[in-house]
């Protein structure tokens, strides 16, 4: 159990708590916070996995996930703000 794997497990645990907010969140915007929290943890986990297996393609996975998560968040918040007609 090297240091990187311990950090990976801790970040995985934290991301589950981020998803907890998605479940509990009274308003839909709380759920979106939970999602952005979760996606930032996923990026860190992807990079950590890339460090552990020493392959650099995992960093690209984190990058693409970050971009798609950002676009998703922007579109969802626009959808809610305009009540359906984007």
């Amino acid at each position: 159990m090297s240091f990187d794997e311990v950090v990976l497990i801790i970040v995985a645990g934290l991301s589950v708590f981020g998803l907890g907010r998605v479940l509990i969140g009274p308003t839909v915007w709380d759920r979106m916070i939970g999602f952005t929290l979760f996606s930032s943890k996923v990026i860190v986990m992807a990079v950590l996995i890339g460090m552990i297996i020493d392959r650099s393609f995992m960093v690209d996975v984190g990058l693409i996930y970050g971009v798609l998560g950002f676009i998703g968040t922007i579109m969802i918040s626009r959808f809610i703000e305009r009540r359906g007609d984007i």
């Binding site: 915007w29 916070i33 952005t36 930032s40 970050g66 971009v67 950002f70 968040t73 922007i74 918040s77």
Partner: peptide
């Protein structure tokens, strides 16, 4: 760099829609 740029924008969009 990507995360530092996109995260503030994303949270701003959420707060604005709220």
């Amino acid at each position: 760099a990507l995360y530092v740029i996109t995260n503030p924008i994303a949270t701003h969009a959420i707060t604005r829609s709220a």
